[in-house]
Design a protein around this nucleic acid. Structure first.
Length: 474
DNA sequence: CCTGGAGTTGTCCTA
DNA sequence: TTAGGACAACTCCAG
């Protein structure tokens, strides 16, 4: 049988195992494995700096597992794919679907165009457990509340497919027009990416190591332990899921398998799987509300009296608000490209409710600095925090970073780690140094306003102001 | 169409 | 010290 040639277009599926579109390509014959950096179609939603750092390393890793045969390009995918197909007489192109509105629009057009040129186009589901259009209420409309979405819509639907194995010994073809990785210009400033590199390893192999480690040490503490930022009980799989170095199917089934070996039903497992459900929910929200990243889901929020305050925003970004737990979270983000989930809620609540800054300011900063920056999750998360989402936090739920510190960082280990200038401040004051007696500050070598900032807002009065602002919307 | 129960993650005040 | 209620009302969802 004559072998034909297919292009597999890698996008958010930077893995070989459990990759339905890659398998489809390899079943047709020889494969041209291509990645295309497309900044122009992304517009304002082009990848942030931390994402680009991750992508650089992930592509390098993928290239290694392809024996150096990954084909890299930058530019307009439609032109690049068409020319590539012509040069190599490829008969088919495969890819796994993406769900960002700019990508679905672009991909639909590319698909039409390639088909008109006589190519077979095969698209697959490589990154969601359930397609957004398959999870709907009985009347066909989309869910707007998480719990019924997950319990009825997802758990009652077909079980996620079992992961596929790697394609067996495919032959990867080369292309003389492909560019070296360095030409994609992905790396941010050296100083910053060295800091990220000391915390993360990108790539498929590293993703599986992380998953294994979570199954071994995190999962059995997950339900309660995930709330304590000083503990390592969260999965930290989000960047791998975002870039598709790991599929949610692989995570889902390995978590279920690990649980089946120990107990029939397990609260830790259920809680963790529901977090995968939140990822699905965010994608559903984005799919049915393409404006989610920039438009309030609840229209009444369009007249919310957000403040403009560059200085406050800068202090928040740099972890210099004078509120230790908030600063710890923001510095974790800056140093590691990641932030513990509870801290994301807390710094979000602080930005939006205590500082009264527009949630989109926070969204933009997260977009640029998180290695797991994901359009759907980021937008849905910020709208949830701001209260402007469909299924959002009630407006009167305003986190108190002092109370939250006492509850979830009871030893102060997380704060001491990321705010070392407060490390010798004894416990009750560590959460609120402005309340410490002069003598205590002196003994800890702290001069407020010099070695550590005064708080940029009064928690109590700013809370009152926020309550009034939110009430004014009703 | 009507109805009732429910909705990820809190905080503060009062008795 | 601690437990319970207020904080609002609205929309979603399923029977």
């Amino acid at each position: 049988m004559p072998q034909s040639t297919a292009i597999h277009w890698f996008r958010q599926d930077l893995r070989l195992a459990d990759n339905p579109a890659l398998r489809a390509a390899s079943q047709r014959g020889a494969v041209l494995p291509a990645y295309i950096l497309d900044d122009s179609n992304a517009g304002t939603q082009a990848m942030g700096a931390a994402s680009r750092w991750w992508l650089y390393n992930s592509l390098r890793s993928l290239n290694e597992s392809l024996g150096g045969k990954l084909l890299l390009y930058a530019g307009e995918p439609q032109d690049i794919l068409l020319r590539l197909a012509k040069r190599h007489r490829a008969s088919a192109i495969t890819w796994n679907r993406c769900y960002e509105p700019w990508r679905t629009k672009r991909d639909a057009q590319i698909k039409r165009h390639l088909k008109q040129s006589g190519l077979v186009v095969e698209t697959c589901n490589g990154s969601l457990l359930w397609e957004p259009w398959q999870v709907a209420k009985a009347d066909g409309t989309a869910y707007k509340v998480f719990t019924p979405f997950y319990r009825k819509g997802c758990l009652n639907a077909e079980l996620p497919r079992k992961p596929l194995s790697k394609p067996r010994a495919p032959s990867w073809l080369e292309d003389e027009r492909a560019q070296p990785l360095e030409a994609l210009n992905l790396l941010p400033s050296a100083l910053w990416h060295e800091s990220l590199a000391s915390h993360w390893q990108a790539g498929e192999a590293a993703a599986h190591r992380r998953l294994k480690s979570f199954l071994k040490t995190g999962l059995r503490h997950y339900k309660g332990g995930r709330d304590f930022p000083a503990k390592l009980y969260t999965s930290r799989l989000s960047p791998y899921l975002h870039f598709g170095e790991l599929s949610p199917h692989q995570v889902w089934h390995s978590v279920c398998a690990a649980t089946a070996a120990t107990a029939a039903t397990d609260q830790h497992t259920d809680t963790f799987l529901s977090q995968l459900g939140w990822r699905e929910f965010s994608y559903s929200l984005l799919y049915y509300n393409p404006d989610l990243p920039h438009k309030n889901l609840q229209e009444k929020f369009d007249k919310f009296p957000w403040r403009e305050d560059e200085a406050a925003l800068l202090a928040w970004q740099k972890g210099q608000t004078g509120v230790p737990l908030i600063d710890a979270g923001m510095r974790e983000l800056w140093q590691t490209g990641f932030m513990h989930n509870r801290l994301r809620m807390l710094v979000g609540s602080f930005l939006v409710k205590n500082l009264l800054l527009d949630w989109r300011c926070g969204e933009r900063w997260f977009w640029d600095t998180l290695v797991d920056a994901d359009l759907a999750n980021n937008a849905a998360g910020w709208q949830w925090v701001a209260g402007s989402g469909a299924d959002a936090a009630p407006y009167f739920r305003i986190f108190n970073p002092v109370t939250q510190g006492q509850r979830f960082d009871p030893q102060g280990a997380y704060i001491r780690h990321y705010v070392p200038e407060l490390a010798s401040l004894p416990l009750p004051y560590l959460y609120a140094p402005w309340q410490a007696p002069a003598k205590v500050l002196e003994q800890a070598d702290i001069v407020l306003g010099t070695t550590y900032p005064h708080p940029i807002t009064d928690l109590k009065t700013s809370r009152q102001t926020a309550l009034e602002a939110y009430k004014s919307l009703a």
